[in-house]
């Protein structure tokens, strides 16, 4: 890998941005890491995905450890989901070979639009109600 100072600085910026998303929303950062490796370092897709997984490890470890200190992590749920994910990855690889993944990706995109839209509407409605009746709903400690 050819790493000039400019590339290192850009990668660091992308890393901080991905970390912010991870801390705020609980996503690992792959959504930022993979395109960064592809466009900045000219990795092919497989290298980018594999390297992204390695970059997620410290983020997930430190992030979960920090959150756990505040009692926010349900470790048993995490272990169950992690076990399930290991099974899912195996099946996913099989399914991906048999189906048109561009159509599937678009369908997944539509599902995300619906899920995201529902969250947006629900939270916006609650925020509007909270503004009409100021009270405990505005208190960050409630979360």
């Amino acid at each position: 890998m050819d790493a000039s100072p400019e590339l290192i600085a850009l990668a660091a910026l992308a890393g901080v941005a991905a970390g912010l998303l991870a801390g705020l929303f609980g996503v690992g950062g792959g959504i930022v890491f993979v395109p960064t490796f592809v466009f900045l370092f000219a990795f092919d897709q497989l290298d980018a995905q594999a390297t992204s997984l390695a970059a997620i490890i410290p983020v997930a470890l430190i992030g979960a450890w920090r959150q756990s200190g505040e009692g926010q992590v349900d470790w048993r749920a995490a272990a169950l989901m992690g076990g399930g994910a290991a099974i899912g990855v195996l099946f996913g690889a099989e399914v991906a070979i048999r189906l048109d993944d561009e159509v599937l990706a678009r369908a997944f995109g539509v599902v995300l639009l619906l899920v995201g839209g529902e969250m947006l509407v629900r939270s916006a409605r609650r925020l509007r109600t909270a503004r009409a009746t100021p009270g405990p709903a505005d208190d960050p400690r409630r979360t």
């Binding site: 890393g15 970390g19 991870a22 950062g29 990795f43 970059a55």
Partner: peptide
Amino acid sequence: HVDWLGAALIGIPAVVGVLIGIRIQRRLP
């Protein structure tokens, strides 16, 4: 397939990001 230097270059700054993100999250309703 895993480029460890690449992973460190982006993953270590991301650890800084995640700590900031969690601080912001804590204050956010």
